[in-house]
Design a protein around this nucleic acid. Structure first.
Lengths: 226, 226
DNA sequence: TTCGGTACATGACCTCGATCAATACCGCCG
DNA sequence: CGGCGGTATTGATCGAGGTCATGTACCGAA
């Protein structure tokens, strides 16, 4: 881990992301002022379940995995965060204790903002409060989606879903590159890596080709039917 | 469905529940003023996924089940709300569209508050905004718990967990009455009713007796080990 | 009391996905 | 080029839990 100076590029990434976009630029700057930047490498641990956390985290590049572990040692991802996303925000209203472990899933640059400061801002500036509320509602919906997906969908259906979520809407046939390792995708979808592999093979006959990280979808409607 | 007048008892239930408790009484009254009260019976539908919703819902008595349905028609619960709980609040920041179906799971009295009014209050009164944020964080944690439970725990473990969550802490042996039908509990835990039955039998040898809705736990430590 | 309906329990079966082990693939460095 | 380490695939096996069918206990109504 190495600390860095924040560049104007970093600022642009942050002020362009969903949470900040609805705030006046000056407010965003105020929040970001004093943020600490650090470089982390794969498998670094940012915090563990139960740790005291006094910061909110922002991903500038790379990927972070949030997960819990069962008594038997198995891990279950409860969130995966990429560039421009924010995590650790629940803890600032839950006694500043982490509800999960955070691990860097590929070399990343991560900013942290003092959560007390942010909380004070939310209390004094209605815009910030509003942005927070919308952010949390959005999060809530995503978690609901995840839960429903877990309870209703088979492995190939989850994968089909994910692929469709990456599809620029309108196009019936498209091609893209997975933004991370397949093992990470597997975790995100609540599957073992092997199950993900098999799901991809099952989708082959519905017009999905996989070569390394490159994915080609020939007929999005076939996927929707799945 | 039958509309009712709000009694002072109702007011007490509401102002005593978690969301309102951190607000000054006058603020709570302001929110509740103009709320519509109605009686619903089992299996009534309050709204369906995709419906436009202009209210936030409060359970005064009874039980409401929030669920999604898959293409195959199977249902998956994403939330179960009892007396004093609030639901439908995400939608007011998500284009006023419901993300799930709501069904009354046993005869209930339910209040609805105009969500625009509530939203305005949140924008103008920092206390309300704060209460909302805390509420949403709490919700977020609960959903995270659910997801992790789904991914890490077997059926008997989930049931053991639930029983422990009902246990007055400190006591090693206790007894209580299920607050709803077993089929509802099954849905809440993401299980088929049969699986819940089997889980209870499996727990019998760890000192859990079940007679109708009455549950007796003889040794909470045995459950924790499970 | 008997009837009928509803919740719940139990058994038999089968599907899905986890797990373990072996192999194939790919980038990397000598 | 060949060997190596991490990643992905494939096969075989197994167990958890869903589904369906049947049986039982319970409760209210007649």
């Amino acid at each position: 881990m190495k600390t860095l100076q924040m560049t104007s590029i970093d600022r642009n990434i942050l002020t362009g992301c969903r949470f900040f976009k609805r705030l006046p630029l000056s407010t965003a700057e105020a929040i970001l002022h004093g943020a600490a930047l650090a470089e982390h490498e794969k498998y670094d641990s940012l915090f563990r379940q139960g740790d005291r956390i006094d910061d909110v985290f922002l991903v500038l590049s790379g990927l972070v995995r949030l997960y819990r572990v069962g008594k038997d040692g198995r891990e279950a991802d409860v969130g995966v965060f990429a560039k421009g996303e924010l995590f650790g925000e629940d803890t600032m209203f839950l006694g500043y204790r982490a509800t999960a472990n955070a691990e860097v899933a590929e070399n990343s640059v991560i900013a942290r903002v003092d959560s007390r400061k942010l909380r004070q801002l939310a209390a004094s500036d209605p815009d910030v409060a509003q942005a927070f509320i919308e952010h949390l509602c959005h999060r809530g919906k995503m978690k609901e989606d995840l839960l429903a997906q877990d309870r209703l969908l088979t492995a190939p259906q989850r994968v089909a879903n994910y692929l469709l979520s990456q599809c620029p809407n309108g196009s019936t046939s498209f091609c893209f590159r997975l933004p991370f390792q397949k093992s990470v995708l597997a975790g995100k979808l609540g599957l073992a890596p092997e199950a993900l592999s098999r799901a991809f093979s099952a989708l082959r006959e519905s017009g999905v080709s996989v070569k390394g990280r490159m994915i080609e979808i020939h007929d999005r409607h076939a996927l929707e039917r799945f």
